[in-house]
Each structure stands twice: as C-alpha cells, then as structure tokens.
Design a protein around this nucleic acid. Structure first.
Length: 272
DNA sequence: CGCCAGGCTTCTA
DNA sequence: TAGAAGCATGGC
C-alpha cells in the first residue's frame, strides 16, 4: 500500500478492491451522502470529510499526516481484501455476490456511533435510518458550524424520551437512552468489548435493553473488528438459502464470515 | 392506502 | 424453548 499527502488530501493506493460509492451505499454507515461529481461527504470523528475513489484508490480531504493510522483502520486498509475475494470466489454463488459490488469494504466505525445507529436501524429502512441519525445529531450533537458531530454518550443520555420521539425514533427512544446510559456508566466499555472473545462481547451487548443478537452483531462487525459476526436481518435470511445449499456458511469462511455477509446482504437487497 | 423495513420485548403455549 | 403479537414511523 502507498500513501501520499498533497494539498490536504490523503490518498491511499495499492491496497486492493475499493469503491467509495459501493462502500457507502452498503447500509453500514449513515452519515455519508453523495455529492455532485461522485464524491461522498460525511462526518467522521467530529470532522467533515470528502471521500473519493472508485478504482482501487481512496482519497480523503481534508487530512494530514497524523490521520494515516486512523483512516487505515476506518477503511480497514490493513485487511487483505484481494486475498479474501480469492477465498470467497471458491463458492460460485458467493463469488457472484462479490462480483456484484467488489468495491465494498466493511468499515471500522466509531463504537458509540455504530451502537446507536444500529439501535435505530431495527425494523426500519435505510433511507429513514439516515434521516433519523441526522436529526439525532442536530438534536444533541455538538454544532461544528454547518454540521453536527455525533452525540457523545453523556449528551444522548441527558436527552428526554420525548425529545427522541419528536425526531421520529418511535418505540426505539427508550432503547437509545438505555444504550447511552450503558456506555456512559461504563457498563459497556469499548476496550473491554474488544478484548473479549466474540460470543462474550455479544452477550455483554445483548444484556442492554433494546439490543438483540442482530444489532449486537452489527456493532461487533462494523466497529469492534469481530469479523466472525454475521448480522442476520430479513435480507440475509432470504439470501442464505440462495447462496449456500444448506443455507449455512462453510466453516473455512467463518473467521471472515462477516465480510462475506456484507456482499451477500448487498446482493440480496438489489436482487431478491 | 397497505406493505415493509439491517428487530426487540413481551406474552403465550 | 418456541412461536406470535405488538410496537412507531415513514418510504415506497
């Protein structure tokens, strides 16, 4: 992999399959929007950035030298997707799902943001989740001048259920408060969850009111680097029998089953 | 208008 | 332990 910093633009090349559009349309991140010209703009770690790249190159503006480790992790550039694709391509139907959008990468997003956005995602659709997240940030996120940072656990925990209902959270309002309180109190701790084995971390997440196995798997996969987590939503439940004869993932894929899941989910949403 | 959405909690058998 | 009802809201 090669990195270059020029005019406040950080560019990564030579790391393998990547498409900004495919990555941000895959239903994993909810704070990015397409801009005229094909770039995507969004808020990460309280900063408004523009992301480009559709052909195995990735550029981020504005950025500086110190941001290289952060974005390497965020875009999972330390994971060898070329090698993973070769593994996935041993299974023809899975290969088809990969080929449908090979530029998808499973992002490694901030823990609290991932937790809250996927609590909001339950029994909901992606366009509405996006709107909800934006209204939540405007409600209790720090104003940065033209945009809002994602709320801190303390700021969200201080909200009222009425205020959360007013932005359209519906019956998820108390779930948001429970999740924020769990993080704010230390019951849920990112470092501790990372240190736990997958199943133990999943159980810890599921102990919070409003977090079930699917949301827990999303947090584990999209934020905590537990690539064996396979979120089973309505699309995955429909797709699995169409991809694998017994409807189950082959054992050799299990260490990175979550990444295979992302290609299957994306394919299913467009084709089933 | 009715159906559905990156589900979870609660009730029931 | 398994299965179904109830849940708020708005995109389509």
């Amino acid at each position: 992999m090669h990195t270059e910093l020029k005019n406040n633009t950080l560019t990564f090349t030579g790391f393998g399959a990547y498409s900004t559009k495919a990555t941000f349309e895959a239903g994993q991140a909810f704070r990015f929007a397409p801009m005229p010209g094909g770039s995507w703009q969004g808020v990460v770690a309280g900063r408004l950035i523009t992301v480009n790249g559709e052909n195995d190159d990735l550029s981020i503006t504005p950025a500086c030298e110190e941001d290289i480790p952060f974005y390497t992790k965020y875009f999972a550039l330390d994971i060898d997707y070329i090698n993973l694709h070769a593994l996935f391509n041993r299974y023809p139907a899975l290969a088809g799902a990969v080929a449908f959008a090979p530029g998808i990468r499973v992002l490694q997003q901030e823990f609290f943001e991932t937790l809250i956005t996927f609590v909001l995602s339950q029994n909901n659709n992606i366009p509405r989740i996006t709107g909800l997240v934006n209204r939540l940030c405007a409600l209790c996120g720090e104003a940065k001048g033209g945009f809002y940072a994602f709320p801190t656990p303390a700021a969200l925990a201080a909200c009222t259920a009425e205020a959360l209902t007013a932005i359209g959270a519906g019956y998820r309002a108390p779930y948001l408060l429970a999740a924020a309180a769990a993080v704010n109190s230390g019951q849920l701790n990112e470092a501790a969850l990372r240190a736990m084995p997958y199943l133990e971390a999943k159980a810890a997440l599921c102990a919070v009111h409003g977090i079930g196995p699917k949301v827990a798997d999303c947090v584990l996969l999209f934020s905590l680097g537990k690539y064996e987590a396979v979120p089973m939503d309505v699309w995955m439940k429909k797709a699995m029998p169409a991809i694998f004869v017994n409807g189950e993932l082959p054992k050799e894929l299990l260490p990175f089953a979550g990444i295979a899941q992302q290609y299957i989910f994306n394919w299913a949403r467009a084709n089933l």
